[in-house]
C-alpha cells in the first residue's frame, strides 16, 4: 500500500515541481483566467445598455460568472489530465514512465489529484477577486450543494480527461490537437454562458452528453437559487453515472492504447 501511495504521489509531486519551476507562467494563467471572467462580468453589466432591454443585471452577471468560474476549473482539470501524456512525449520521458512498475490507474489518479487541487486554487483566486470587483451577492447561495457538485463534476471530468489522454498516446502527431478540439467543443455545447435550450436542435443531444452541462446547471441552481442537493438530483445522477462509467472506461481505453503503441512502436520520442 505504501509503495502504491509513493507511486501515485510521484505524479502529483512531479506536476507540482513543474508548476514551481514555471511559477511566472502560473501567474500568467491566473491573470488570464481573471481577465476572462471579468470581461464576461462586464459584458453582463453592459447587456442592458447594449440591448435596451430591462433585465436583472446582478442576477445575469452572477449567471455568467458562475459559468466562467466553473469553466476555469473544469477546463483546467481536463487539460492537466489529458495533457499528461503530451508533456511526457515532448520531454521524451514517456518510455521511462511506462517502463516503471506502476499501474496505469495510479499514474492517472496521481495526475488527477493534482489537476483537481490546482484547478480549485485557480478557481478560488478568480472567484474571490471577481466577487469583490462585482460585489456579488452570495446570500442566496447554497455553498454546501455547490461544493458537492464541484466534487462530482471533478470526477466526471477526470474520466473525460483520461479518455482524451489516450489520443496523444496513440497519435503523437495529431492527438494533442484532437484533445484541444474536444475541449473547445465541450466549451461550446455545455452552456457556460447560456442555457443549452438556445442551441440548435441537433446540438442539444451533444450538450446532454457533456458532464459540464449538468455541472453548470446544478451549480447555477445552487448558487443563484439556493437549491438543495435533493432538489438537484435530476442533475446529480448523470454526473454520478458519467463518473462511474468514464473513470474505469478511461483506464481501460488507456491500457488498450498502451498495448497498441507498444505493438506498433509509437512510444519513442519521434513517434
Amino acid at each position: 500500500m505504501k509503495k502504491k501511495i509513493i507511486q501515485t504521489m510521484a505524479f502529483f509531486l512531479r506536476e507540482l515541481d513543474m508548476r514551481k519551476r514555471s511559477f511566472m507562467w502560473q501567474i500568467v494563467w491566473i491573470v488570464y483566467d481573471l481577465m476572462w471572467a471579468m470581461s464576461v462580468g462586464f459584458l453582463g453589466l453592459g447587456v442592458a445598455s447594449i440591448s435596451g432591454a430591462e433585465i436583472n443585471t446582478n442576477q445575469y452577471v452572477l449567471y455568467l460568472l458562475v459559468g466562467s468560474f466553473m469553466w476555469t476549473y473544469l477546463s483546467s482539470v481536463f487539460s492537466i489530465v489529458s495533457w499528461a501524456i503530451t508533456w511526457e512525449r515532448w520531454e521524451g520521458t514517456i518510455e521511462y514512465t511506462f517502463m516503471a512498475p506502476v499501474k496505469r490507474i495510479f499514474h492517472l489518479v496521481g495526475n488527477s489529484i493534482f489537476a483537481i487541487i490546482y484547478g480549485l486554487i485557480r478557481m478560488v483566486i478568480v472567484f474571490l477577486i471577481s466577487s469583490a470587483v462585482f460585489d456579488l451577492n452570495l446570500q442566496n447561495a447554497n455553498l454546501f450543494a455547490a461544493g458537492f457538485i464541484l466534487i462530482l463534476a471533478s470526477i466526471s471530468f477526470v474520466g473525460f480527461g483520461m479518455m482524451a489522454a489516450v489520443l496523444p498516446l496513440i497519435s503523437p502527431e495529431n492527438g494533442e490537437k484532437t484533445t484541444m478540439i474536444v475541449e473547445a467543443i465541450l466549451m461550446m455545447v455545455s452552456g457556460i454562458f447560456y442555457p443549452i435550450t438556445i442551441l440548435p436542435i441537433w446540438m442539444q443531444p451533444i450538450a446532454r452528453l457533456s458532464p459540464a452541462t449538468y455541472a453548470l446547471e446544478a451549480m447555477r441552481k445552487a448558487i443563484v437559487e439556493h437549491a438543495s442537493i435533493g432538489s438537484l438530483w435530476g442533475l446529480i445522477w448523470p454526473l454520478i453515472i458519467t463518473g462511474i462509467v468514464l473513470i474505469p472506461l478511461g483506464n481501460f481505453v488507456f491500457k488498450l492504447g498502451e498495448q497498441y503503441v507498444k505493438r506498433v512502436g509509437k512510444l519513442k520520442r519521434d513517434g
Binding site: I6, R21, E91, Y96
Partner: peptide, 21 residues
C-alpha cells in the same frame, strides 16, 4: 530524456518514486 525544467534532484526523485522508493 528528462523533464528539462526540473532539477536533477527532482527528476531523480520522480524516477525513484515511480518504483515506490
Amino acid at each position: 530524456s528528462f523533464f528539462k525544467r526540473l532539477s536533477a534532484r527532482e527528476n531523480l526523485l520522480y524516477a525513484a518514486r515511480l518504483y515506490g522508493i
